[in-house]
Structure formats: structure tokens, C-alpha cells
Amino acid sequence: MSLVNPLRPLPIPNPLTEPYWQAALEGVLKMPHCLSCGQFHFYPRSLCPFCRSDALDWQAVSGLGEVYSYTVVHRAPSLGFKGMLPYTVGIISLDEGPHLMSRIVGVPPEEIFIGMRVNVDFESQNSEINLPVFVKSLQAPRVVTPKENA
């Protein structure tokens, strides 16, 4: 369930990022992927940051990862976040390699730790935006081979 505050800033997709938000709307976490070196990266770029190839596509990832770092926010950056305080902003290290910022939800802040296994979930903001968030996962780390399953 999500109580969406209209004052909260939402992403405005652009041609570079549209596939990410479109997939999120369908409940899938997709990452930019290099057809040349095979690596995933994030945030989206025009060229693969590892090999500079422009042969890029978007592939669904497992949505599994671990907490790389986190912070419990006690003071809202703007009015739209006030009702949510305190909330946990984290950096998630996906099993496929990329990092991304997100919120860690459904876990009391004092139980969150670096290295905690998490998996993706989605918070609907409106008819156009699903925000990927992360919840505590009971699944062990595994090596994931990218597969298109959207």
C-alpha cells in the first residue's frame, strides 16, 4: 500500500530512461545491459561505462541484491516526505553488479544492516510511475544469468 503525497517529487522519464520506468510499471526491474561486454550498468548511459560500446539493451534482472549502505532519514528534504519520517534510504548492490539508490521498506530501521539480503518490490505512485523499493529477502545470493522474462 502506498499513500502518495502529491508534493513528493516523482521521476519524469525521458528517452534515455523510459524503458526503466515502463518496465517498473509492469512490475519488472530492468537494467541497461551491454551486448558487447555483457555487463549491466546503472544509471542509464549512452555508452557502456566499462567498454564504451553503444550496443546496449535493457534486460530484466533478478531484483535480488544486498544493502551496500543505508541511512535513516529523520528530517524531510521537503514537505512531501514529512509524513513518512523516519524512512530508510539505501544503496542496493544488485547481484548483477549495478548499484542503485532506493528505499528499504517493511523492515524496522534498527534491523537493517550492510549486507542484508533484499529484493525489489514496487510502490505505485500514480498510473504512470511505479517506484522500485526493496524489502528484506530470505533468498540467498545466487549467480544470475540475464534473461528476458518481462
Partner: peptide
């Protein structure tokens, strides 16, 4: 980042808090 970070509600200080937490770890 306006699309991938701001919607999660980090303060400028939160970005540094993430760095600090990792450094402590």
C-alpha cells in the same frame, strides 16, 4: 539524481550519510 534518487527523499546530507555508514562498516 532527479529520476533515480530524488524520488526516494534523500537530503544532501543523506548522500554523505550513505558514504559515512559505508566508511564505518
Amino acid at each position: 539524481h532527479s529520476q533515480f534518487e530524488v524520488p526516494y527523499g534523500p537530503l544532501v546530507a543523506s548522500n554523505y550519510a550513505l558514504i559515512a555508514q559505508r566508511h564505518m562498516h
